[in-house]
Amino acid sequence: MILEAVMLQVKQGTDENYEEAFRQASKIISTMPGYISHELQRCMEVKGKYLLLVSWETLEDHTVGFRESSEYQEWKKLLHPYYDPFPVVEHFEKVHIY
């Protein structure tokens, strides 16, 4: 499993609209091959700051399967206008420490 982690900053005063757009976009990502789960967390200290966590079966499920799909174009249309600055996406894998 791969964890996609993205710190998001949305434009001032757009929080409610962004969250509604994200609800719509959630329907898109959840249908993609390799998708496991996702969650959006709202920062308590910084207005307009969010953390997106998405679990994928493989890195390629996100970077190729989703990012190169027509569904991603709809995702972008719904969400990307809200971001300022544009977010950096990072991927993580579990470290087995036992």
Rank of each mutant, 00 (worst) to 15 (best):
Q24E: 15
C43K: 08
L8M: 07
M7P: 04
L59I: 09
H91F: 09
Y98Q: 12
E68D: 14
L53W: 04
W75M: 02
L78S: 00
G13L: 01
Y50K: 05
P85V: 04
D84E: 14
E19I: 06
H38I: 05
S26G: 15
V10F: 04
V95C: 11
H80A: 14
V10G: 01
I36C: 02
E45Y: 12
H38W: 04
L3T: 14
L52Y: 05
I28R: 02
V64H: 04
F22K: 01
Y18Q: 02
I29M: 10
L52C: 04
L53T: 11
G65F: 03
E71L: 12
V10I: 11
P81M: 01
Y83P: 01
Y18S: 02
D61T: 03
Q9S: 12
Q9G: 02
S37V: 01
V46G: 00
H96I: 15
M1T: 15
G34V: 09
K27P: 00
A21P: 01
V89N: 05
Q73K: 13
I36T: 10
I36E: 09
K49M: 11
G65Q: 03
A25M: 05
S37R: 15
F22G: 00
E4N: 05
E60R: 07
R67I: 02
K77L: 02
D61I: 02
E4M: 11
P33G: 05
S26Y: 01
V54C: 10
Y18C: 01
T63K: 05
K76Y: 08
D15L: 05
K11H: 10
E60F: 00
V46W: 04
L3K: 13
E90G: 13
M44G: 14
Q41D: 07
P33M: 06
P81E: 09
K49E: 12
R23M: 07
H62E: 07
H62L: 10
N17I: 02
Q9P: 00
L59F: 09
T14F: 06
Q73S: 06
E71M: 08
K94V: 12
L40A: 06
L40G: 02
M1P: 12
V88F: 04
F86G: 02
Q9R: 12
L3A: 15
W75H: 08
V6H: 04
T31R: 13
K47V: 07
S55L: 12
H91I: 13
D15G: 03
L51A: 11
L40M: 14
E68C: 13
I2L: 15
V6R: 10
V6K: 03
P33S: 07
E90P: 00
P87S: 06
